[in-house]
Design a protein around this nucleic acid. Structure first.
Lengths: 240, 240
DNA sequence: ACCTGAACACCGTTCAAGT
DNA sequence: ACCTGAACACCGTTCAAGT
Protein backbone atom coordinates (compact mmCIF):
# COMPACT_ATOMS: atom_id res chain seq x y z
CA UNK A 1 0.00 0.00 0.00
CA UNK A 2 1.51 3.27 -1.15
CA UNK A 3 1.11 6.72 0.30
CA UNK A 4 -1.21 7.66 -2.57
CA UNK A 5 -3.41 4.69 -1.72
CA UNK A 6 -4.08 5.63 1.84
CA UNK A 7 -4.65 9.20 0.74
CA UNK A 8 -7.66 8.21 -1.36
CA UNK A 9 -9.18 6.56 1.65
CA UNK A 10 -9.27 9.80 3.58
CA UNK A 11 -9.56 12.65 1.12
CA UNK A 12 -12.01 13.08 -1.74
CA UNK A 13 -10.66 14.31 -5.06
CA UNK A 14 -11.65 17.97 -5.50
CA UNK A 15 -14.10 18.62 -8.34
CA UNK A 16 -12.44 19.58 -11.59
CA UNK A 17 -15.01 22.29 -12.29
CA UNK A 18 -16.53 24.65 -9.80
CA UNK A 19 -19.92 24.93 -11.54
CA UNK A 20 -23.01 23.22 -10.19
CA UNK A 21 -23.54 19.96 -12.01
CA UNK A 22 -26.95 18.81 -10.87
CA UNK A 23 -30.30 20.08 -9.80
CA UNK A 24 -32.88 22.68 -10.63
CA UNK A 25 -31.92 26.20 -9.73
CA UNK A 26 -34.52 27.33 -7.26
CA UNK A 27 -36.26 24.19 -6.08
CA UNK A 28 -35.81 23.11 -2.45
CA UNK A 29 -34.43 19.69 -1.70
CA UNK A 30 -37.59 17.79 -0.81
CA UNK A 31 -40.52 16.54 -2.83
CA UNK A 32 -42.13 19.34 -4.83
CA UNK A 33 -45.87 19.93 -4.59
CA UNK A 34 -46.75 20.03 -8.30
CA UNK A 35 -46.10 17.19 -10.77
CA UNK A 36 -42.66 18.30 -11.84
CA UNK A 37 -41.83 15.25 -13.92
CA UNK A 38 -43.56 12.31 -15.63
CA UNK A 39 -43.00 9.88 -18.48
CA UNK A 40 -44.71 11.95 -21.15
CA UNK A 41 -42.75 15.07 -20.23
CA UNK A 42 -39.58 13.03 -20.56
CA UNK A 43 -40.74 11.74 -23.94
CA UNK A 44 -41.55 15.23 -25.20
CA UNK A 45 -38.25 16.66 -24.00
CA UNK A 46 -36.41 13.78 -25.67
CA UNK A 47 -37.96 14.54 -29.04
CA UNK A 48 -37.11 18.23 -28.63
CA UNK A 49 -33.51 17.35 -27.89
CA UNK A 50 -33.29 14.93 -30.82
CA UNK A 51 -34.71 17.53 -33.18
CA UNK A 52 -32.16 20.04 -31.97
CA UNK A 53 -29.01 17.97 -31.88
CA UNK A 54 -29.71 14.39 -32.91
CA UNK A 55 -29.53 11.20 -30.90
CA UNK A 56 -25.98 11.95 -29.89
CA UNK A 57 -27.40 14.97 -28.05
CA UNK A 58 -29.89 12.83 -26.15
CA UNK A 59 -28.13 12.35 -22.81
CA UNK A 60 -29.50 12.10 -19.32
CA UNK A 61 -27.70 15.32 -18.45
CA UNK A 62 -29.17 17.25 -21.38
CA UNK A 63 -32.61 15.84 -20.63
CA UNK A 64 -32.36 16.91 -17.01
CA UNK A 65 -31.23 20.38 -18.04
CA UNK A 66 -34.13 20.74 -20.48
CA UNK A 67 -36.60 19.63 -17.82
CA UNK A 68 -34.92 21.72 -15.14
CA UNK A 69 -34.36 18.82 -12.76
CA UNK A 70 -31.39 16.88 -11.46
CA UNK A 71 -30.25 13.92 -13.57
CA UNK A 72 -31.12 11.56 -10.76
CA UNK A 73 -34.73 12.75 -10.75
CA UNK A 74 -35.26 11.05 -14.11
CA UNK A 75 -34.79 7.67 -12.47
CA UNK A 76 -37.98 8.11 -10.46
CA UNK A 77 -39.88 7.78 -13.76
CA UNK A 78 -37.78 5.58 -15.99
CA UNK A 79 -35.57 2.65 -15.11
CA UNK A 80 -32.82 3.47 -17.58
CA UNK A 81 -31.99 5.30 -20.77
CA UNK A 82 -33.10 2.21 -22.71
CA UNK A 83 -36.44 2.70 -21.05
CA UNK A 84 -36.64 6.20 -22.54
CA UNK A 85 -35.85 4.81 -25.98
CA UNK A 86 -38.77 2.41 -25.54
CA UNK A 87 -41.06 5.34 -24.77
CA UNK A 88 -39.91 7.05 -27.97
CA UNK A 89 -40.48 3.92 -29.99
CA UNK A 90 -44.05 3.49 -28.79
CA UNK A 91 -44.80 7.11 -29.52
CA UNK A 92 -43.39 6.91 -33.04
CA UNK A 93 -45.21 3.70 -33.91
CA UNK A 94 -48.51 5.46 -33.31
CA UNK A 95 -47.58 7.94 -36.04
CA UNK A 96 -47.32 5.19 -38.66
CA UNK A 97 -50.24 5.41 -41.07
CA UNK A 98 -52.24 2.17 -41.19
CA UNK A 99 -55.42 3.81 -42.44
CA UNK A 100 -55.15 2.23 -45.89
CA UNK A 101 -55.88 -1.22 -44.48
CA UNK A 102 -59.62 -1.63 -44.78
CA UNK A 103 -60.08 1.12 -47.35
CA UNK A 104 -57.62 0.36 -50.17
CA UNK A 105 -56.68 -2.92 -51.88
CA UNK A 106 -54.30 -5.04 -49.79
CA UNK A 107 -51.31 -4.45 -52.04
CA UNK A 108 -51.84 -0.71 -52.07
CA UNK A 109 -52.39 -0.72 -48.32
CA UNK A 110 -49.09 -2.52 -47.73
CA UNK A 111 -47.24 -0.06 -49.87
CA UNK A 112 -48.69 2.98 -48.13
CA UNK A 113 -48.11 1.50 -44.68
CA UNK A 114 -44.54 0.59 -45.54
CA UNK A 115 -43.74 4.04 -46.91
CA UNK A 116 -45.12 5.75 -43.84
CA UNK A 117 -43.31 3.33 -41.52
CA UNK A 118 -40.01 3.91 -43.27
CA UNK A 119 -40.40 7.69 -43.26
CA UNK A 120 -41.18 7.80 -39.56
CA UNK A 121 -38.11 5.78 -38.59
CA UNK A 122 -35.70 7.22 -41.14
CA UNK A 123 -35.27 10.13 -38.71
CA UNK A 124 -34.91 7.73 -35.77
CA UNK A 125 -32.62 4.97 -37.00
CA UNK A 126 -30.86 4.57 -33.62
CA UNK A 127 -34.12 3.06 -32.36
CA UNK A 128 -34.18 0.34 -35.00
CA UNK A 129 -31.71 -2.07 -33.38
CA UNK A 130 -33.92 -1.81 -30.31
CA UNK A 131 -37.34 -2.29 -31.94
CA UNK A 132 -36.29 -5.27 -33.97
CA UNK A 133 -35.62 -7.15 -30.75
CA UNK A 134 -38.26 -5.63 -28.46
CA UNK A 135 -41.10 -7.88 -27.22
CA UNK A 136 -44.54 -6.49 -28.11
CA UNK A 137 -45.95 -7.56 -24.73
CA UNK A 138 -45.55 -4.17 -23.07
CA UNK A 139 -46.13 -2.10 -26.20
CA UNK A 140 -49.87 -1.52 -26.80
CA UNK A 141 -49.46 0.88 -29.71
CA UNK A 142 -47.10 -1.46 -31.51
CA UNK A 143 -49.59 -4.24 -30.96
CA UNK A 144 -52.39 -2.07 -32.34
CA UNK A 145 -50.43 -1.54 -35.53
CA UNK A 146 -49.82 -5.26 -35.94
CA UNK A 147 -53.51 -5.93 -35.38
CA UNK A 148 -54.42 -3.61 -38.24
CA UNK A 149 -51.88 -5.14 -40.59
CA UNK A 150 -52.80 -8.71 -39.66
CA UNK A 151 -56.45 -8.02 -40.28
CA UNK A 152 -55.66 -6.54 -43.67
CA UNK A 153 -53.58 -9.54 -44.69
CA UNK A 154 -56.18 -12.03 -43.42
CA UNK A 155 -58.85 -10.32 -45.50
CA UNK A 156 -56.52 -10.35 -48.47
CA UNK A 157 -56.48 -14.14 -48.28
CA UNK A 158 -53.07 -14.88 -46.81
CA UNK A 159 -52.92 -18.13 -44.84
CA UNK A 160 -52.97 -17.68 -41.07
CA UNK A 161 -49.67 -19.45 -40.54
CA UNK A 162 -47.78 -17.18 -42.93
CA UNK A 163 -48.92 -13.76 -41.83
CA UNK A 164 -46.37 -13.20 -39.09
CA UNK A 165 -43.62 -14.13 -41.53
CA UNK A 166 -44.95 -11.70 -44.10
CA UNK A 167 -45.00 -8.90 -41.53
CA UNK A 168 -41.53 -9.70 -40.21
CA UNK A 169 -40.10 -9.81 -43.71
CA UNK A 170 -41.72 -6.52 -44.70
CA UNK A 171 -40.50 -4.88 -41.52
CA UNK A 172 -36.97 -6.08 -42.21
CA UNK A 173 -37.09 -4.38 -45.58
CA UNK A 174 -38.61 -1.24 -44.05
CA UNK A 175 -36.01 -0.93 -41.29
CA UNK A 176 -33.12 -1.59 -43.63
CA UNK A 177 -34.48 1.02 -46.02
CA UNK A 178 -34.79 3.57 -43.23
CA UNK A 179 -31.02 3.50 -42.79
CA UNK A 180 -30.47 4.17 -46.49
CA UNK A 181 -32.34 7.47 -46.30
CA UNK A 182 -29.45 8.87 -44.26
CA UNK A 183 -26.71 7.73 -46.63
CA UNK A 184 -24.45 10.53 -47.86
CA UNK A 185 -24.38 11.63 -51.49
CA UNK A 186 -22.04 9.57 -53.61
CA UNK A 187 -21.90 6.70 -51.14
CA UNK A 188 -21.43 4.31 -54.09
CA UNK A 189 -18.77 6.37 -55.80
CA UNK A 190 -15.82 3.97 -56.09
CA UNK A 191 -13.24 6.77 -56.11
CA UNK A 192 -9.74 5.68 -57.06
CA UNK A 193 -10.75 2.01 -56.91
CA UNK A 194 -12.98 2.33 -59.97
CA UNK A 195 -10.63 0.33 -62.18
CA UNK A 196 -10.90 -2.67 -59.88
CA UNK A 197 -14.70 -2.71 -60.24
CA UNK A 198 -15.56 -1.65 -63.81
CA UNK A 199 -19.05 -3.18 -63.95
CA UNK A 200 -20.14 -1.68 -60.67
CA UNK A 201 -18.64 1.67 -61.62
CA UNK A 202 -20.62 1.72 -64.85
CA UNK A 203 -23.81 0.74 -63.11
CA UNK A 204 -23.36 3.49 -60.50
CA UNK A 205 -22.87 6.01 -63.32
CA UNK A 206 -26.29 5.02 -64.71
CA UNK A 207 -27.98 5.43 -61.34
CA UNK A 208 -29.95 8.55 -62.14
CA UNK A 209 -30.69 7.84 -65.79
CA UNK A 210 -34.34 7.01 -65.37
CA UNK A 211 -35.07 8.82 -62.09
CA UNK A 212 -34.14 12.41 -62.70
CA UNK A 213 -34.77 14.10 -59.40
CA UNK A 214 -35.55 11.26 -57.03
CA UNK A 215 -33.22 10.33 -54.19
CA UNK A 216 -31.44 6.98 -54.79
CA UNK A 217 -32.81 5.67 -51.49
CA UNK A 218 -36.36 6.44 -52.63
CA UNK A 219 -35.86 4.78 -56.00
CA UNK A 220 -34.51 1.64 -54.39
CA UNK A 221 -37.29 1.58 -51.81
CA UNK A 222 -39.96 1.95 -54.48
CA UNK A 223 -38.47 -0.77 -56.66
CA UNK A 224 -37.94 -3.16 -53.77
CA UNK A 225 -41.41 -2.62 -52.40
CA UNK A 226 -42.98 -3.19 -55.79
CA UNK A 227 -41.02 -6.41 -56.28
CA UNK A 228 -41.84 -7.59 -52.78
CA UNK A 229 -45.57 -7.05 -53.20
CA UNK A 230 -45.60 -8.72 -56.60
CA UNK A 231 -43.91 -11.74 -55.11
CA UNK A 232 -46.36 -11.81 -52.21
CA UNK A 233 -49.25 -11.79 -54.67
CA UNK A 234 -47.90 -14.97 -56.22
CA UNK A 235 -47.06 -16.68 -52.95
CA UNK A 236 -50.43 -15.86 -51.42
CA UNK A 237 -52.20 -18.28 -53.72
CA UNK A 238 -49.43 -20.84 -53.95
CA UNK A 239 -48.45 -21.35 -50.36
CA UNK A 240 -51.70 -23.00 -49.23
CA UNK B 1 -13.30 32.11 -6.95
CA UNK B 2 -13.77 29.75 -4.03
CA UNK B 3 -11.18 27.95 -1.98
CA UNK B 4 -12.04 24.69 -3.74
CA UNK B 5 -11.41 26.36 -7.09
CA UNK B 6 -7.93 27.50 -6.38
CA UNK B 7 -7.17 24.11 -4.90
CA UNK B 8 -7.77 22.40 -8.25
CA UNK B 9 -5.28 24.73 -9.84
CA UNK B 10 -2.46 23.56 -7.65
CA UNK B 11 -3.16 19.98 -6.66
CA UNK B 12 -4.22 17.09 -8.86
CA UNK B 13 -7.06 14.89 -7.63
CA UNK B 14 -5.61 11.62 -6.32
CA UNK B 15 -6.51 8.55 -8.37
CA UNK B 16 -9.55 6.70 -7.08
CA UNK B 17 -7.95 3.32 -7.58
CA UNK B 18 -4.38 2.38 -6.87
CA UNK B 19 -4.00 -0.08 -9.75
CA UNK B 20 -2.12 0.87 -12.90
CA UNK B 21 -4.58 1.89 -15.59
CA UNK B 22 -2.48 2.12 -18.70
CA UNK B 23 0.50 0.57 -20.36
CA UNK B 24 2.12 -2.75 -20.93
CA UNK B 25 3.78 -4.23 -17.89
CA UNK B 26 7.42 -4.59 -18.81
CA UNK B 27 7.91 -2.41 -21.85
CA UNK B 28 10.06 0.71 -21.50
CA UNK B 29 8.61 4.08 -22.36
CA UNK B 30 10.11 4.66 -25.80
CA UNK B 31 9.42 3.16 -29.20
CA UNK B 32 9.76 -0.62 -29.11
CA UNK B 33 11.98 -2.39 -31.64
CA UNK B 34 9.53 -5.04 -32.91
CA UNK B 35 6.19 -4.27 -34.53
CA UNK B 36 4.11 -4.32 -31.38
CA UNK B 37 0.88 -3.12 -32.97
CA UNK B 38 -0.78 -2.81 -36.37
CA UNK B 39 -4.26 -2.61 -37.88
CA UNK B 40 -4.67 -6.33 -38.44
CA UNK B 41 -3.66 -7.15 -34.87
CA UNK B 42 -6.27 -4.67 -33.68
CA UNK B 43 -8.85 -6.27 -35.94
CA UNK B 44 -8.06 -9.77 -34.71
CA UNK B 45 -8.14 -8.72 -31.06
CA UNK B 46 -11.48 -6.99 -31.64
CA UNK B 47 -13.05 -10.17 -32.99
CA UNK B 48 -11.67 -12.14 -30.05
CA UNK B 49 -13.17 -9.65 -27.64
CA UNK B 50 -16.55 -9.64 -29.43
CA UNK B 51 -16.66 -13.43 -29.41
CA UNK B 52 -15.95 -13.43 -25.68
CA UNK B 53 -18.23 -10.67 -24.45
CA UNK B 54 -20.11 -9.09 -27.33
CA UNK B 55 -19.89 -5.60 -28.75
CA UNK B 56 -20.52 -4.10 -25.35
CA UNK B 57 -17.20 -5.67 -24.32
CA UNK B 58 -15.36 -4.03 -27.20
CA UNK B 59 -13.79 -0.99 -25.53
CA UNK B 60 -10.52 0.74 -26.15
CA UNK B 61 -9.42 -0.25 -22.66
CA UNK B 62 -10.24 -3.94 -23.18
CA UNK B 63 -8.55 -3.87 -26.57
CA UNK B 64 -5.42 -2.34 -25.09
CA UNK B 65 -5.38 -4.93 -22.30
CA UNK B 66 -5.76 -7.79 -24.80
CA UNK B 67 -2.95 -6.42 -26.93
CA UNK B 68 -0.81 -5.58 -23.89
CA UNK B 69 -0.38 -1.93 -24.76
CA UNK B 70 -1.57 1.39 -23.38
CA UNK B 71 -4.94 2.65 -24.64
CA UNK B 72 -3.26 5.62 -26.26
CA UNK B 73 -1.04 3.36 -28.34
CA UNK B 74 -4.08 2.30 -30.36
CA UNK B 75 -4.38 5.82 -31.74
CA UNK B 76 -1.12 5.44 -33.61
CA UNK B 77 -2.89 2.93 -35.87
CA UNK B 78 -6.54 3.96 -35.95
CA UNK B 79 -8.06 7.41 -35.81
CA UNK B 80 -11.00 6.45 -33.62
CA UNK B 81 -13.16 3.59 -32.42
CA UNK B 82 -15.37 4.12 -35.49
CA UNK B 83 -12.26 3.44 -37.52
CA UNK B 84 -11.94 0.05 -35.84
CA UNK B 85 -15.56 -0.74 -36.66
CA UNK B 86 -14.77 0.02 -40.29
CA UNK B 87 -11.89 -2.45 -40.18
CA UNK B 88 -14.26 -5.11 -38.82
CA UNK B 89 -16.82 -4.37 -41.51
CA UNK B 90 -14.32 -4.77 -44.33
CA UNK B 91 -13.09 -8.02 -42.88
CA UNK B 92 -16.60 -9.43 -42.52
CA UNK B 93 -17.68 -8.45 -46.02
CA UNK B 94 -14.91 -10.63 -47.43
CA UNK B 95 -16.52 -13.61 -45.70
CA UNK B 96 -19.78 -13.18 -47.59
CA UNK B 97 -20.17 -15.94 -50.17
CA UNK B 98 -20.58 -14.56 -53.70
CA UNK B 99 -19.37 -17.72 -55.41
CA UNK B 100 -22.82 -18.58 -56.76
CA UNK B 101 -22.73 -15.63 -59.15
CA UNK B 102 -21.34 -17.01 -62.35
CA UNK B 103 -22.02 -20.65 -61.53
CA UNK B 104 -25.71 -20.83 -60.56
CA UNK B 105 -28.81 -19.21 -62.10
CA UNK B 106 -29.15 -15.53 -61.15
CA UNK B 107 -32.14 -16.09 -58.85
CA UNK B 108 -30.41 -18.92 -57.04
CA UNK B 109 -27.23 -16.88 -56.81
CA UNK B 110 -29.06 -13.97 -55.21
CA UNK B 111 -30.63 -16.23 -52.64
CA UNK B 112 -27.36 -17.85 -51.67
CA UNK B 113 -25.54 -14.54 -51.48
CA UNK B 114 -28.31 -12.99 -49.40
CA UNK B 115 -28.39 -15.89 -46.94
CA UNK B 116 -24.65 -15.79 -46.47
CA UNK B 117 -24.66 -12.00 -46.10
CA UNK B 118 -27.40 -12.14 -43.47
CA UNK B 119 -25.70 -14.89 -41.51
CA UNK B 120 -22.39 -13.07 -41.40
CA UNK B 121 -23.93 -9.85 -40.05
CA UNK B 122 -26.49 -11.42 -37.75
CA UNK B 123 -23.65 -11.82 -35.25
CA UNK B 124 -22.49 -8.26 -35.88
CA UNK B 125 -25.65 -6.15 -35.97
CA UNK B 126 -24.01 -3.15 -34.24
CA UNK B 127 -22.05 -2.65 -37.46
CA UNK B 128 -25.17 -2.37 -39.61
CA UNK B 129 -26.04 1.27 -38.84
CA UNK B 130 -22.48 2.04 -39.87
CA UNK B 131 -22.30 0.02 -43.12
CA UNK B 132 -25.59 1.31 -44.43
CA UNK B 133 -24.14 4.81 -44.48
CA UNK B 134 -20.48 4.07 -45.22
CA UNK B 135 -19.03 5.24 -48.58
CA UNK B 136 -17.53 2.38 -50.59
CA UNK B 137 -14.63 4.58 -51.73
CA UNK B 138 -12.18 3.36 -49.09
CA UNK B 139 -13.51 -0.18 -48.85
CA UNK B 140 -11.97 -2.42 -51.53
CA UNK B 141 -13.48 -5.67 -50.29
CA UNK B 142 -16.95 -4.19 -50.16
CA UNK B 143 -16.43 -2.91 -53.68
CA UNK B 144 -15.28 -6.37 -54.80
CA UNK B 145 -18.51 -7.87 -53.50
CA UNK B 146 -20.60 -5.29 -55.34
CA UNK B 147 -18.64 -5.96 -58.52
CA UNK B 148 -19.51 -9.66 -58.34
CA UNK B 149 -23.20 -8.99 -57.70
CA UNK B 150 -23.44 -6.31 -60.38
CA UNK B 151 -21.88 -8.63 -62.93
CA UNK B 152 -24.33 -11.37 -62.04
CA UNK B 153 -27.30 -9.06 -62.39
CA UNK B 154 -26.06 -7.61 -65.68
CA UNK B 155 -25.70 -11.11 -67.11
CA UNK B 156 -29.18 -11.92 -65.83
CA UNK B 157 -30.54 -9.17 -68.03
CA UNK B 158 -31.33 -6.41 -65.55
CA UNK B 159 -31.17 -2.92 -67.02
CA UNK B 160 -28.02 -0.98 -66.15
CA UNK B 161 -29.90 1.87 -64.54
CA UNK B 162 -31.77 -0.38 -62.11
CA UNK B 163 -29.01 -2.56 -60.78
CA UNK B 164 -27.87 -0.27 -57.96
CA UNK B 165 -31.47 -0.01 -56.80
CA UNK B 166 -31.87 -3.77 -56.83
CA UNK B 167 -28.73 -4.19 -54.74
CA UNK B 168 -29.69 -1.45 -52.28
CA UNK B 169 -33.15 -2.91 -51.83
CA UNK B 170 -31.84 -6.43 -51.31
CA UNK B 171 -29.29 -5.17 -48.82
CA UNK B 172 -32.00 -3.34 -46.90
CA UNK B 173 -33.90 -6.60 -46.56
CA UNK B 174 -30.74 -8.47 -45.61
CA UNK B 175 -29.70 -5.99 -42.90
CA UNK B 176 -33.18 -5.79 -41.45
CA UNK B 177 -33.36 -9.58 -41.36
CA UNK B 178 -30.01 -9.79 -39.59
CA UNK B 179 -31.52 -7.97 -36.61
CA UNK B 180 -34.41 -10.46 -36.43
CA UNK B 181 -32.05 -13.36 -35.88
CA UNK B 182 -31.28 -11.96 -32.43
CA UNK B 183 -34.90 -11.50 -31.38
CA UNK B 184 -35.82 -13.29 -28.14
CA UNK B 185 -38.27 -16.19 -28.07
CA UNK B 186 -41.87 -15.10 -27.87
CA UNK B 187 -41.15 -11.57 -29.05
CA UNK B 188 -44.64 -11.50 -30.62
CA UNK B 189 -46.43 -12.88 -27.61
CA UNK B 190 -49.03 -10.23 -26.79
CA UNK B 191 -49.18 -11.17 -23.10
CA UNK B 192 -52.04 -9.58 -21.19
CA UNK B 193 -52.89 -7.36 -24.15
CA UNK B 194 -54.07 -10.30 -26.24
CA UNK B 195 -57.74 -9.30 -25.99
CA UNK B 196 -56.99 -5.95 -27.60
CA UNK B 197 -55.47 -7.65 -30.66
CA UNK B 198 -57.41 -10.87 -31.33
CA UNK B 199 -56.46 -11.28 -34.98
CA UNK B 200 -52.77 -10.78 -34.36
CA UNK B 201 -52.91 -13.09 -31.34
CA UNK B 202 -54.45 -15.84 -33.43
CA UNK B 203 -51.95 -15.39 -36.19
CA UNK B 204 -49.03 -15.56 -33.74
CA UNK B 205 -50.47 -18.79 -32.35
CA UNK B 206 -50.28 -20.30 -35.84
CA UNK B 207 -46.68 -19.23 -36.33
CA UNK B 208 -45.13 -22.66 -36.14
CA UNK B 209 -47.87 -24.66 -37.78
CA UNK B 210 -46.14 -25.30 -41.06
CA UNK B 211 -42.50 -24.85 -39.97
CA UNK B 212 -41.98 -27.34 -37.19
CA UNK B 213 -38.43 -26.79 -36.13
CA UNK B 214 -37.34 -23.72 -38.02
CA UNK B 215 -36.65 -20.43 -36.26
CA UNK B 216 -39.28 -17.75 -36.97
CA UNK B 217 -36.58 -15.40 -38.25
CA UNK B 218 -35.45 -18.04 -40.75
CA UNK B 219 -38.98 -18.72 -41.96
CA UNK B 220 -39.63 -15.03 -42.50
CA UNK B 221 -36.30 -14.54 -44.26
CA UNK B 222 -36.96 -17.47 -46.58
CA UNK B 223 -40.44 -16.31 -47.44
CA UNK B 224 -39.39 -12.69 -47.93
CA UNK B 225 -36.44 -13.62 -50.09
CA UNK B 226 -38.57 -15.88 -52.24
CA UNK B 227 -41.18 -13.16 -52.74
CA UNK B 228 -38.50 -10.59 -53.48
CA UNK B 229 -36.83 -12.69 -56.13
CA UNK B 230 -40.14 -13.57 -57.77
CA UNK B 231 -40.97 -9.91 -57.99
CA UNK B 232 -37.57 -9.11 -59.43
CA UNK B 233 -38.08 -11.76 -62.10
CA UNK B 234 -41.19 -9.94 -63.23
CA UNK B 235 -39.73 -6.45 -63.04
CA UNK B 236 -36.59 -7.47 -64.89
CA UNK B 237 -38.50 -7.88 -68.13
CA UNK B 238 -41.04 -5.13 -67.54
CA UNK B 239 -38.89 -2.23 -66.47
CA UNK B 240 -37.07 -1.76 -69.78
C1' DA C 1 7.54 6.50 -35.74
C1' DC C 2 5.36 4.76 -31.95
C1' DC C 3 5.12 3.78 -27.29
C1' DT C 4 3.76 5.09 -21.90
C1' DG C 5 1.52 7.64 -18.29
C1' DA C 6 -1.55 10.89 -16.98
C1' DA C 7 -5.09 13.60 -17.62
C1' DC C 8 -9.66 15.37 -19.71
C1' DA C 9 -14.43 15.80 -20.60
C1' DC C 10 -17.80 13.25 -20.83
C1' DC C 11 -21.37 9.10 -19.92
C1' DG C 12 -25.31 6.43 -17.35
C1' DT C 13 -26.41 5.16 -12.75
C1' DT C 14 -26.71 4.94 -7.55
C1' DC C 15 -27.83 6.57 -3.12
C1' DA C 16 -28.14 9.15 1.24
C1' DA C 17 -30.42 13.19 2.76
C1' DG C 18 -34.26 15.91 2.57
C1' DT C 19 -39.46 17.15 2.58
C1' DA D 1 -43.38 9.55 -3.45
C1' DC D 2 -40.07 12.18 -5.54
C1' DC D 3 -36.72 15.59 -5.48
C1' DT D 4 -31.31 17.35 -4.82
C1' DG D 5 -26.42 16.85 -4.40
C1' DA D 6 -22.61 14.17 -4.62
C1' DA D 7 -20.32 10.49 -5.90
C1' DC D 8 -19.04 6.16 -8.76
C1' DA D 9 -17.28 3.43 -12.39
C1' DC D 10 -16.87 3.72 -16.58
C1' DC D 11 -16.09 5.73 -21.70
C1' DG D 12 -13.27 7.55 -25.94
C1' DT D 13 -9.64 10.76 -26.78
C1' DT D 14 -5.51 13.91 -26.22
C1' DC D 15 -0.90 14.99 -25.35
C1' DA D 16 3.69 15.68 -23.29
C1' DA D 17 7.58 12.89 -22.38
C1' DG D 18 10.36 9.34 -23.77
C1' DT D 19 13.39 6.40 -27.05
Amino acid sequence: VTAADSLTLHSRPPRTTASREAGAEGRPRGRPRGGVLNASKITAASFTLIAQSGYQGLTMAALARTLNVAKSALYNHVASKQDILRLLEEHLISQVDVSAFGTAQWDDAIQRWALSYRNVFAKHTPLIPLIAVLPVAGAPKTLAMYEKVSTGLLEAGFAEDHIVSVIVALEAFIFGSAFDVNAPDGIFNPGRLAAAAPRFTSVVAHLNDSNCNELPADTAFGLGLKAFVRGLRQLRTELV
